[in-house]
């Protein structure tokens, strides 16, 4: 029989990864927003994501909804455990989401919504980093429910993860702007990319070194022999992609930095997977223990197999319609 829980865990991991990459760049732009020049630069930056942000955030709903549907027990444990950061995240997403429309509605209010866009993006990102950190750090489970308090998520490790993800999203945002803009804004984006490229790599190193100390179980995965062969490619490729990113930024090849950054995120994600599998609540509940019954998973899989490729196609189409550099003078020459 096919291993449906494993398939669903992979699909959800894929959804979360797509979310992180796609909303990562538009959240990153939000974080960088106050450091862009007011006026045209900000408008262009906002317009570069306005047609796609809504689709980007839909992957977050798929992540949350998919966890609820495929692994209800994990959803029921993780959400109460991460209560505060989740609430902050969704409220922050409200602040930034409405700004896309509100900032055009009244000139006098524009600075307010630009600030709302910035702070919302920053708070949402930092909370997501904390969510990620707490997840890796582990969650106390008692009798099919969360067994800890509502501040258990707070630790130096989760705070570091918050900073790490913030730098990572800034890098995604900056490299997206490099891809989509020209002239002054692009120059500025390159300088952001230099700064956050270095910071992101530094934080990746810190988190990677720290993680094995969280639990002997993780440490064992990373250093014991047969796994080592499987595990070694991850840091190796991180070094390769880090160099590629540096080269793209140094030589100013507009297309390279964004995709190199996506690659880096992908590798971190793979590393995370190696540290967590086969658990869905690390070291407490496995994917098989949390999985919804066969009938639920199969019913959804039929839809997912048909629909996810179609979704990817029309999402790609929508990106293609708005392809190329966002230039306020486009079509004029």
């Amino acid at each position: 029989m096919i291993d449906l829980p494993l398939i669903w865990a992979s699909l959800l991991a894929f959804a979360v990864f797509v979310y992180v990459v796609l909303d990562g760049f538009d959240l990153g732009i939000g974080i960088l927003y106050p450091y862009l020049k007011t006026g045209q630069d900000r408008d262009v930056a906002m317009n570069s994501v306005a047609p796609v942000w809504d689709g980007n955030e839909t992957w977050l709903i798929l992540g949350g909804g998919g966890l609820f549907a495929a692994f209800p027990l994990a959803y029921a444990v993780i959400m109460p455990a991460l209560y505060a950061p989740i609430i902050v995240m969704i409220l922050a997403l409200v602040f930034r989401g409405v700004a896309f429309e509100y900032r055009w509605r009244d000139d006098r209010h524009k600075p307010i919504w630009d600030l709302s866009f910035h702070l919302g993006s920053l708070a949402a990102t930092f909370s997501q980093g904390i969510v990620l950190g707490s997840f890796v750090q582990g969650i106390k489970v008692v009798d099919r429910a969360y067994g800890g308090g509502w501040w258990d998520w707070l630790s130096p490790f989760t705070i570091i993860c918050g900073f790490a993800l913030t730098c990572g999203y800034c890098l995604l945002g900056a490299t997206w702007l490099i891809l989509k803009t020209e002239e002054g804004l692009r120059d500025r984006a390159y300088s952001f990319a230099r700064l956050f490229g270095v910071l992101t790599l530094v934080f990746m190193a810190i988190v990677s070194v720290w993680t094995p100390f969280l639990s002997p179980d993780i440490a064992e995965r990373w250093v014991s022999f047969p796994q080592l062969l499987f595990v070694i490619p991850v840091p190796t490729f991180i070094i390769v992609l880090g160099c590629l990113l540096g080269w793209g930024i140094y030589k100013r090849v507009d297309r390279v930095p964004f995709f190199a950054t996506i690659g880096l995120f992908g590798l971190c994600f793979a590393g995370l997977g190696i540290g967590v599998a086969p658990y869905i609540v690390p070291r407490a509940i496995t994917i098989h223990e949390a999985a919804a019954p066969h009938a639920s998973l199969l019913f959804m899989l039929v839809g997912a197999v048909i629909l996810i490729p179609i979704i990817l196609m029309y999402t790609a189409y929508s990106y293609w319609v708005f392809r190329g550099k966002i230039d306020p003078n486009a079509g004029y020459h």
């Binding site: 839909t58 798929l62 909804g65 209800p72 099919r144 839809g303 629909l307």
Partner: peptide
């Protein structure tokens, strides 16, 4: 969520897959 997830979760997942996207 834990109890009803297997039944109403997939309906919501279909909502995301067929409608939200």
């Amino acid at each position: 969520s834990d109890k009803a997830g297997p039944v109403i979760g997939p309906l919501m997942a279909y909502e995301v897959l067929t409608a939200f996207f």
